[in-house]
Amino acid sequence: MSIKKNIELQTIISGLLVSFMTITLLSVLLGLDYTDKNLGSSLIDINEDLTRSANVVTSVVTYFRGLDTLGEVTILFLSIFGIGLGIENSPHMKNILSYDNTLLKLGAKVLFPLIVLFGFYIIIHGHLSPGGGFQGGVIVASGFLLMLLAYGEAFHLNHKIITVFESLSGAGFVLIGILGVILGDIFLSNMLPLGVVGQLFSSGIMPIIYIFVGLKVAAEITVLVEYFLRTEDVG
């Protein structure tokens, strides 16, 4: 009886909390002043002079909000680290979803280089076309996922190389930020020549930051998928 009373009290309290938060959010949203000159349009106005990039989303992610991207990458690293701690690592591991099929193996062998190439294209052209580090990194990781599904235990990931890529790209991101302090004025400020809009070698440090972010995301998502696909060999 007392347990039932507790649950009812919790339900009432959580309902009150949710309605309070909803009313607060609604009042904040209704009180906002939607003028013509908001943050988005002013960012689009100053984008071409400051960064010379064709993609405003990329300049927000890597230049105007570069520090937030560093925090995002750190959060991703911490979550993968936690999963690695939680999933045990024993030599008697078996791929849970792999299925022995010759046609699938042949198709995966043909498609894997194309998928990885497309992922790196998306990463490198982040400041020219839609996409960027996160999107391209996840596409590269999906290529590795295809190989893991098709080949099972026969496809070995070299964890040393993945660790080297992951830590070097994280360190490179911070190093570029510190170089911005030394050569420019603030953390992650631009110290390279800007170039012409629409060219591959343009817009300063933005492509370099996105290459680091892409390598880091690709390594982390690949390791995450590999951890999830393994299970203890019971039979």
């Binding site: 989303v57 849970i96 979803l97 998306i122 839609p130 996409g131 960027g132 996160f134 999107q135 996840v138 596409i139 990781a141 999906s142 996922l145 599904l149 998502i221 995450l224 998928v225 999830f228 696909l229 299970t231």
Partner: peptide, 26 residues
């Protein structure tokens, strides 16, 4: 929003499904 569409195509229709399926099979 092609940026978001790229992310959703890989994460929503690919990797998250694999993660859910493996968790279910376990």
């Amino acid at each position: 929003a092609p940026d978001v569409a790229l992310t959703e195509a890989v994460i929503g229709a690919g990797i998250s499904g694999v993660v859910f399926l493996v968790s279910l099979l376990q």
